[in-house]
Write a protein that binds this DNA or RNA. Structure first.
Length: 235
RNA sequence: CAGGAUUGUCAGCGC
């Protein structure tokens, strides 16, 4: 069974959803891991509706979801920005007694945020026993999408007040916020602090965000310079 | 102690 699940997972990750399903379909008995692997593949490749339908089928076959299953479902919900489906999954998570799980909490915050429901995202966020970097980053990303750079900066600040250290992904979210709001100086300053104050080596995502920021504010020469520099250092 | 599914990560466009 372990090997078959790994096979389903491999096809799913590669986007071979039909192949994944064919393997799955031939299993005489499908356990929660096989189901989760299949659902994960569908969720990951933009087939959120199918993923949720598979979950329904899983329940009809009386297979109990576990923590990982819920993570996969939340990914499906956010991929189709379905806030109401997220609420339904949320209710089941509570029923199963997983409400205080930090991993699921993070995923719920992220799912609500991606669905555009920041109120629910914050409600879950505040209900968690402790908040970690992932939940903060999800919220920052959501504020960034709404072009609310002030809230992004504020979150970045609060997070550190709470004793958490931002990581590379956090900075991607912050830089994305600067870009969307056209805040060049702030973006440059955060980019500098990335290495100088936080000791994090910038990755391609950070450089991409900077190129994007330069482009957004009309600094095309700087954007091109950065791209050329990147082309040199990456190859 | 190990283990087959495991949450936050660029931009734009279309629906």
């Amino acid at each position: 069974a372990a090997i078959i699940t790994a096979l389903i997972d491999m096809y799913g990750k590669c986007g071979g959803l039909e192949e994944a399903y064919m393997v799955f379909d031939k299993l005489p008995s499908r356990d929660v891991m096989a189901w989760s692997a299949l659902i994960s593949g569908y969720a990951e490749h933009g087939h959120g509706v199918e993923a949720l339908r598979l979950f329904k089928q899983m329940q009809q076959e009386a297979v109990e979801p576990n923590l990982v299953t819920f993570l996969c479902l939340l990914k499906a919900c956010s991929s189709i920005a379905a806030a109401n489906q997220t609420s339904l999954v949320h209710a089941q998570i509570i029923e199963c007694g997983y409400a205080l799980d930090i991993t699921l909490g993070n995923a719920l915050v992220d799912a609500y945020a991606k669905c555009g429901n920041l109120e629910h995202a914050y409600a879950v966020f505040h209900s968690l026993p402790s908040c970690d970097v992932m939940a903060w980053s999800s919220l920052m990303k959501a504020h960034s999408k709404e072009c609310d750079a002030q809230s992004v900066f504020q979150s970045f600040h609060c997070m550190q007040e709470a004793g958490l250290r931002p990581d590379g992904v956090t900075f991607v979210c912050v830089l994305s916020g600067c870009s969307r709001s056209g805040l060049l100086d702030e973006g440059c300053s955060y980019f500098k602090s990335l290495l100088e104050q936080h000791g994090i080596a910038p990755t391609l995502e950070h450089y991409n965000s900077m190129v994007d920021l330069f482009g957004h504010v009309g600094c095309f020469a700087e954007a091109e310079d950065l791209l050329e520099t990147l082309a040199f250092s990456c190859n």
